[in-house]
């Protein structure tokens, strides 16, 4: 992106969040919007991380504590196909982590109520498969 100098702006200039009009924003998910290059959604803070969260769907109870408390809008909650009583239905679920915008603060893991946790903080360079294969067992009493 070409950046303008401080003296090259018109007075009252505006940064636009989207390239085109988005109707009904509160109900249009991020993947269906046309973000402008000035939206921080297009930027990454992945390099801030020392640790990253790993999500294990097997233990998740879809309580959405991680979603509500993530300060970086990085817990993805979306409709997902699930099986209930032999029937396939769409249900709002925790589906994963947005690693472009996650800063690795660890709040999501700390508020996750399951035993074992469904979110664990691991070294940024650790591999997801290895972590999932070695997921801790049920602890009984917390800590």
């Amino acid at each position: 992106m070409e950046l303008r100098g401080w003296d090259e702006f018109e007075i009252g200039s505006v940064l636009f969040s989207f390239n085109e009009k988005v109707e009904n924003i509160p109900n249009v998910q991020q993947e269906d919007r046309s973000y402008s290059e000035n939206n921080s959604f297009q930027a990454s803070v992945a390099h801030w991380r020392v640790e990253k969260p790993i999500f294990n769907v097997d233990h998740c109870i879809d309580c959405f504590f991680c979603w509500i408390y993530c300060p970086d809008s990085s817990i993805l909650a979306r409709e997902k196909e699930v099986e209930k009583k032999g029937e396939k239905i769409m249900e709002q679920s925790m589906v994963g982590i947005d690693y472009v915008h996650c800063k690795g603060c660890g709040v999501c893991s700390s508020v996750c109520p399951t035993d074992p946790k469904s979110l664990l903080m691991v070294d940024e360079h650790d591999e997801e498969e290895r972590v999932l294969a070695n997921w801790p067992k049920k602890e009984g009493k917390e800590k």
Binding site: Q42, V45, I68
Partner: peptide, 15 residues
Amino acid sequence: LKEYSKAAERFEGAH
């Protein structure tokens, strides 16, 4: 929270 989480974000990450 299940209902709450259906809201599409209007405050983006990478702040």
